[in-house]
Computed example of a mutant assay.
Amino acid sequence: MPLLERLILLFAESGYLAVFAALLLCGAGAPLPEDITLVAGGVIAGLGYANVHVMAAVALVGVLAGDAAMFLLGHRHGARIMQWPLVARLLTLARYARVQERFTRYGNRLLFLARFLPGMRTAVYVTAGATHRVSFLRFLLLDGLAALISVPVWVYLGYVGANNREWLATWIGRGQHGLWILAGAAALVALALWWCRRRRARRGIHG
């Protein structure tokens, strides 16, 4: 895992600021896997270069800041953002149309699940902002709930496996599947709560 080792060396030298900056780049769609970046932050904490709880907090803020920046760019500039060379390379017109169609169909659920879809996050967040169909507060709430699931998993995984990279490599793969299970469980809970509220509302109308 050469990328992980390079990130560990960089973060060990520069600490929290480097992790925060790397996560901003991840949010902007840079070809840097967010999960590996978070694991590397956890590893340097496990090696004694940082406090793991502070690292988890810094990582969470970095993730949300990067996501929020993309949402606000889309919200401010709308479809015009597609004319920017850097954005056009990341988000083609065809991809923008697909994401827009999925956002129309799935709405808030897509915003929550986007955190667990590597390669789709930036496109979803820019599109969500550009459509003006969701407020910034709602976006931050949904993205924050998803980040509270994913970010600690990766950071603490890196912390626990800091001195056993072979074990860590195995659990990175398992962690990716595990996050999908957690996300699915959270989505089922949200669906059950929504169904219960709707059922009570119907009883109130007919009562």
Rank of each mutant, 00 (worst) to 15 (best):
A128R: 13
I205W: 10
R102T: 02
V151P: 08
D143M: 00
P31M: 02
L7H: 10
W84E: 10
T37E: 01
A88G: 00
R102N: 03
M55Q: 06
R121E: 04
G204L: 15
L137P: 00
A50P: 02
E166H: 09
L72G: 12
A128N: 00
G78D: 05
Y96W: 10
A162H: 05
L142E: 02
A68P: 00
G158F: 07
R200W: 01
S150R: 04
R115C: 07
Q176T: 15
L157I: 04
V43H: 01
R102K: 11
V19N: 09
G158N: 13
L182D: 01
H177E: 11
R200M: 09
L93F: 15
L93C: 03
V63H: 01
H53D: 14
F103D: 11
H75G: 00
I181D: 06
H53V: 12
Y106H: 09
R98I: 00
L73A: 13
G184Q: 10
L60H: 13
Q176G: 13
Y125L: 11
L7E: 08
A22D: 03
Y49V: 13
L145F: 13
V54W: 03
C26G: 13
L32P: 09
V99Y: 10
G74E: 08
L72V: 15
L168F: 00
F139H: 06
A68Y: 15
C196M: 14
L145W: 07
T122Y: 05
W195I: 14
L141F: 02
L47H: 07
A187I: 09
L157R: 03
L60I: 01
M1T: 02
T122I: 05
A88H: 08
A79I: 14
L32N: 01
T170H: 12
G29S: 04
W194R: 15
V99D: 07
A185Y: 06
W180G: 06
V63L: 05
G173S: 02
Q83A: 15
H206G: 13
I44T: 12
I81K: 05
R6D: 05
G78A: 00
A192Y: 02
L148R: 03
L60S: 10
A45S: 04
L47Q: 11
S14Q: 15
L193V: 09
G66E: 04
L86F: 07
L145S: 11
G173K: 08
A162T: 05
V99C: 11
M55L: 09
D143Q: 14
G62T: 10
W171A: 03
I149V: 13
A185K: 13
L140Q: 06
V99R: 06
D143F: 04
V189G: 12
